[in-house]
Amino acid sequence: MRNTFVKTLVKLAETDSRIFVITPDLGFSVLEEFEEKYPDRFLNVGIAEANAVSIAAGLALSGKIVYVYSIIPFVIMRPFEQIRVDVAYMNTNVRLVGVGAGVTYGPAGATHHAIEDIALMRALPNMTVFAPSDPYEVERITEESINYQGPIYFRLPKKGEPIISNSKNEIRLGKANYIKKNIESEIAILFTSNASDLALDVEDKLLKEGYCSDLVSMHTIKPFDHAALAEILKTKKHIFTIEEHNVIGGLGSVVSEYIAESIYNPVFKRFALPDEYSHYVGSQSYIRDKFGLTAQNITTTILELL
């Protein structure tokens, strides 16, 4: 998805001179094309994440549209105060582009994992939180982001995820993306970001057991598509969320908060990473397995609830 993001941005920059890219010394093998084509609009500020965010805010206040690109912990956690004050509070047109959702950077250890980022970003007033599930969503929202007012956080995986969206679907910030829809189904699986492979696998396993389900990509965590969720709750008796994020503060929290204040009472279950850091070092699938975030475990639990 990061390659789709950069290719789309390079194309947009051909006709929009407002677009700038800043990196705190990361993005090698990804950002070179933008740097070569638009050297006057590309800044590598070195390993100085807080400065990167403040420079971006300054450029945005002068009319530029600025994308700050790095690994998630370095673009979100390290410069959090600058994001809060210079970006969110000032409501600037800065786009924070974080790569490596969840435990994508598994072998690098907990310092490089991104399990708290959605919770942090959705707690900031004015911040839009975009967590795409496939390259098609990335392309459409990158295009929309050019004229979008206010800051955006992009949560990007980097494992070459396939396109799962229907090209006829309208992809907009704050609008749910139905991957599969079945009127007769009483089950809805809502997922976000790099949990798409888990969601698709679970849906397939349930189908083999005789249960069909809606499959919905909730690519925008904030502003959330509460209207779509309300429609789902009207027609579905069983709601499940899947995400590669801390069980606290992510997609599951958004949905449960809405249900708690609604008139609906579905069977509801969150599937996410537990509220603990990983002391395991290994691949993404290895760490998922260690924490029980696997399609088989999720399917088994759903079948028990059904």
Results as ranks from 00 to 15, higher is better:
70 S>N: 13
228 A>H: 06
184 E>F: 01
236 K>V: 00
36 E>N: 09
162 P>Y: 08
38 Y>F: 15
264 Y>I: 08
44 N>T: 13
58 G>H: 12
48 A>V: 13
226 H>E: 10
255 V>N: 02
261 E>D: 05
2 R>Q: 10
34 F>A: 05
247 V>M: 11
99 V>L: 15
216 V>L: 08
238 H>Y: 14
252 G>I: 06
214 D>G: 06
71 I>V: 15
305 L>Y: 09
52 A>N: 04
276 E>F: 01
152 I>M: 10
208 K>M: 14
233 L>M: 05
175 K>W: 00
137 E>V: 09
283 S>C: 12
167 S>Y: 14
302 I>G: 11
55 I>F: 13
159 K>P: 01
260 A>E: 06
246 N>F: 06
206 L>P: 05
140 R>L: 08
103 V>P: 00
171 I>D: 13
19 I>S: 11
32 E>M: 13
295 A>N: 10
156 L>K: 01
291 F>D: 04
284 Q>W: 01
301 T>P: 03
56 A>W: 10
247 V>H: 12
138 V>H: 08
27 G>R: 08
86 D>G: 00
235 T>F: 04
53 V>N: 08
139 E>Y: 09
87 V>Q: 09
143 E>A: 11
30 V>C: 10
197 D>L: 14
84 R>Q: 01
210 G>C: 10
250 G>N: 11
55 I>H: 05
192 T>L: 06
44 N>H: 08
275 D>A: 07
26 L>D: 12
32 E>C: 08
64 K>V: 04
284 Q>M: 05
247 V>N: 06
236 K>P: 00
112 H>Q: 14
9 L>I: 14
187 I>Y: 12
277 Y>V: 15
123 A>Y: 00
288 R>Y: 11
250 G>F: 04
65 I>T: 14
232 I>Q: 06
109 G>T: 09
98 G>A: 15
212 C>P: 02
179 I>H: 10
80 F>K: 08
268 F>E: 04
191 F>E: 11
167 S>P: 05
276 E>Y: 00
235 T>R: 15
227 A>H: 11
181 K>E: 11
258 Y>C: 08
128 T>I: 00
146 I>T: 11
7 K>M: 02
48 A>D: 13
35 E>P: 00
142 T>I: 15
103 V>T: 11
189 I>E: 02
29 S>E: 12
88 A>Y: 00
171 I>T: 10
13 A>N: 06
34 F>E: 12
216 V>G: 02
